[in-house]
Design a protein around this nucleic acid. Structure first.
Lengths: 155, 155
DNA sequence: TGAATTCATTTAACATGTTAAGTATACTGC
DNA sequence: GCAGTATACTTAACATGTTAAATGAATTCA
């Protein structure tokens, strides 16, 4: 590749840290949500699953994994936990015995309705501190990044 | 197949995904680096530590944790691994017996010099696919986000 | 000085991330 | 039908994330 254009730049630093900058930004946001979720007895990932379940009456594990962006083994464990806590109920798909279908229980839905508003408040604070316009900008850029990199997996 | 729940919009759209969009973007990048690092016998986090060690002659665990953005317990385990593999050598700070100071061994430095170029290649590909200008833009926005949220922890 | 406190690191316990392998069901082509 | 393959999870094994507590060494200050 080409020689770095500007030697005064601190060691081609962005090369070394794109992944870390994404991590840090995420952590900046999540460090606000985690304590709130913890007070409700949930982890970030469990909450992602509950949100996905709240948005769909019936949803199988594969689609749940996609929507909550979890790998199958993690999702298996999380669903086992949520079942133990009686937040989620499992049944099997009559048309395909390989599939499990999940729904929120009454308890699960009540929890969802409890956590939602708390989450809203924190989101509003972030939006206020960073700026709604910039947040939208970031959101757009992230989506483009994801798309650009996902579409060219082959070479 | 999933059945959407009721049409009422309980939570705002971006609320559903800021944290997940950051995660997805990060995953889009890391899914390229992980196989390469794995071929060298390293995880992403171990590589972060090695990079930080390569940049500083002497560095204690606290600063290493900051620079590699790892929590202390994770760093402890990673350093134990790197010591077992003889990639890193530990000594204790003469002025403060609480602190451990770390350096790359010859083996560690050779590994760093092996992995570095492979990492470069993947970064260049990402830069090419997404666009250097946009990447810079994203990088800047992430830094601002992190700063905006970190500076107002109290109110 | 010495008790109390802070600091650096480690350990513990449990949840999740990651890859590989296993299990059971569905599908496909012959 | 049935062998071969693909699909939908699940389990296993190990690494890391997260919080709390423990350990041992510095620091503070009455």
């Amino acid at each position: 590749m080409s020689v770095p254009a500007d030697k005064s730049m601190p060691l081609r630093d962005f090369q070394h840290s794109l992944s870390m900058e994404l991590l840090k930004a995420r952590e900046a946001a999540m460090s606000r949500f985690r304590p709130m979720l913890r007070r409700h007895g949930l982890t970030e990932q469990q909450w992602r699953v509950i949100r996905a379940l709240a948005a769909y009456q019936q949803i199988d594990a594969s689609e749940l994994a996609q929507r909550s962006f979890l790998l199958a083994p993690s999702l298996t464990r999380i669903l086992q936990f949520l079942e133990r806590e009686k937040l989620v109920k499992r049944s099997s798909d009559a048309n395909d015995q390989r599939r499990s279908v999940f729904v929120l229980t009454g308890k699960g839905r009540r929890l969802y309705e409890e956590v939602g508003p708390d989450s809203e408040i924190l989101y509003s604070e972030i939006e206020e501190q960073f700026g709604a316009d910039k947040l939208e900008n970031l959101y757009q850029l992230l989506a483009e990044f994801y798309t650009a990199l996902s579409n060219e997996d082959s070479d």
